[in-house]
Amino acid sequence: MIQETKFIQGQIFHREEGKYVEFKSIESQKPVKKIVDYAEQYIIGFLNASVEGDIYLGIDDSGTILGIALNRSQKDEIQKNITDKLRNIDPVISPTYYDIEIHDIYDMEEQKIENIYVVQLHTLRVEEDDLYRTSEREYWMYKTAEDSVYMKKASSCFKLSGEEINKESKMRYQKHLRKDLEKIDNKLLRDPKNILLLKEKAKIAEYMSDVQMVRETYEKMLTIIPNNPKIRIAYASAQEKFGDSESALAIINDGVKLDNNNQHYLKKLGEILFSSDRQSDAINAFKAALDINPDDYTILTQIGITLRELGNYKESLYFLNSALSKAPNYRAAKYEKKKTYSKMFQGGTGINKTY
């Protein structure tokens, strides 16, 4: 909030620089441009720090009120140019997030000094998950645009490096997920067996890499509907993503015991075995799935890939061609077929034209 203050030239301003306040003296021959640039950097810095802050332009680091020489036209330019530049901040901010005030300056006898001013920029505190970026974009040949991200900390406003931006973005994303998780947990208190809420919770826990929460949430879902293959397969996929292939196998094998005629279980079992370099076992799982649905071209393709990894190129091509006979436009089978031919040539294996 802009407060009424009388600025006396040469006196020490009553506020001090710190987390919420910044002073800048302006000695440039182009004061408007300098003021606009500072406005963008510091407003972004305050927004990213989630603090309500002020920057006073025309006061030096010691807090001495100096003022800036501005004519009427320049004062109008400052108001217009700051607003125009802040419209291009990414993400876009509302004009209600900040205020621009140009204060008169007085001499020791409290007489107004003509055409000398202090420019105050006030920024509201906002709670956002995104990082605000400047409107400045630099292009060089075919390089992508580069935006600047500023952060107000203590008595400085600094530009974040690429690594710092990534860390800050990750931290904010985690914060956003924790907020969503809190909302879901509150709803689950009223409806603890809501599968949709539990699925959402499991997904968030996976994004947060919280292995324990993922396990507990899926186990709860399986106590509610133990025979649901989609939940069990999603559970296994999450464990596999965390690098725990043995747990993923155990989850799917439990599903196979419940329903050994479920194609989806057997296919997922083959995929986990394949990624665990157990290709021979994977072949058996895929073929068992294929026995249930001989027309599944995705399983035919996976068998072809697995056979190629075992060095059985001709048999691999047989299954890939079978997949394409079922689905002529299936791109994965086309790609794997080309890859298999390439490996055959590299290995010096002769190609039988019937494949």
Score class of each variant (00 low, 15 high):
T123D: 02
S62Q: 12
D107K: 14
A202Y: 07
N227V: 02
Y235D: 01
F13M: 00
S247W: 06
V119I: 15
G45A: 08
E77H: 12
Q74Y: 07
I26T: 08
I8D: 04
Q279R: 07
D60P: 13
H122L: 03
I292E: 01
D104P: 06
V92M: 05
V214Y: 08
A332N: 12
E182I: 01
I78H: 08
E127K: 10
G348L: 08
L160R: 11
E16T: 13
A282M: 05
R72S: 13
S247Q: 14
V51M: 01
M344L: 02
E246S: 10
Y318N: 09
L121P: 08
L269Y: 10
S161K: 10
L273F: 07
N194V: 03
T301K: 12
E336L: 03
K24Y: 10
S155L: 01
Y150R: 07
K339E: 01
K24C: 03
A236R: 12
I272K: 10
S28W: 04
R87Q: 09
N81C: 00
N284I: 14
E182N: 14
G311L: 04
D185R: 14
N262A: 02
E163L: 11
I233A: 01
I55G: 04
E200H: 14
S94C: 07
N228E: 15
K85M: 04
I303L: 07
A145F: 06
R137K: 14
G348K: 13
I233C: 02
G347L: 02
E240Q: 14
K201G: 00
D210T: 08
M151Q: 08
P91T: 10
Q9L: 05
L86D: 02
K152R: 15
T123C: 15
K230R: 05
K314S: 09
D295W: 05
M208E: 12
S237R: 15
L131H: 14
L324V: 03
E309D: 10
I100Y: 11
N166K: 15
F158Y: 13
A236E: 05
D84S: 09
D295A: 11
V126G: 00
V149P: 08
I2G: 00
Y318C: 00
Q41F: 09
F345S: 06
K193R: 14
D99I: 05
N115R: 13
I44H: 06
Y335K: 15
L181I: 06
K179C: 00
I26K: 12
N284Q: 13
G350Y: 10
S316Y: 12
V92D: 01
T340S: 08
N253T: 07
E315N: 15
F46V: 02
P226F: 07
L47G: 04
V211K: 15
E77D: 15
K267V: 00
Y139T: 08
A288Y: 02
I225S: 11
I55Y: 09
A289L: 07
I292W: 06
K175R: 15
Y173L: 12
K193V: 02
M108A: 08
